[in-house]
Amino acid sequence: MIRGRELTTGTVIDVARLTGCYQDPDGSPPCTQWAQPQPGLWHLEVSDVQALALPIPGRGQLGLWPPSEDLVAQVLQQLPDLRQ
Rank of each mutant, 00 (worst) to 15 (best):
P80L: 00
L76Q: 06
P80R: 03
P29D: 06
I13G: 12
G58I: 12
I56S: 02
T32G: 03
G40A: 08
G63A: 08
A35G: 03
L82E: 08
L62G: 11
L41H: 08
L64W: 00
G40F: 07
Q38T: 04
D48M: 05
P29Q: 15
V15N: 01
Q38F: 09
G20L: 11
G4S: 07
D81Y: 09
P55E: 08
R83A: 14
L7A: 02
S47W: 05
D48N: 08
R3C: 02
G40K: 04
S47F: 02
Q78Y: 09
P39D: 10
Q77E: 03
L44N: 05
L52F: 12
Q61F: 13
P67F: 14
V72N: 04
G10T: 05
D48F: 09
R5G: 06
Q33H: 11
C31I: 07
R3V: 07
A51C: 01
A16L: 06
L18E: 03
Q50S: 05
L82Y: 06
T19R: 13
V75T: 10
D48T: 10
P57W: 12
M1I: 14
L44F: 08
P39R: 14
A53R: 15
G10Q: 01
G27T: 07
V15A: 04
V15L: 03
L18I: 01
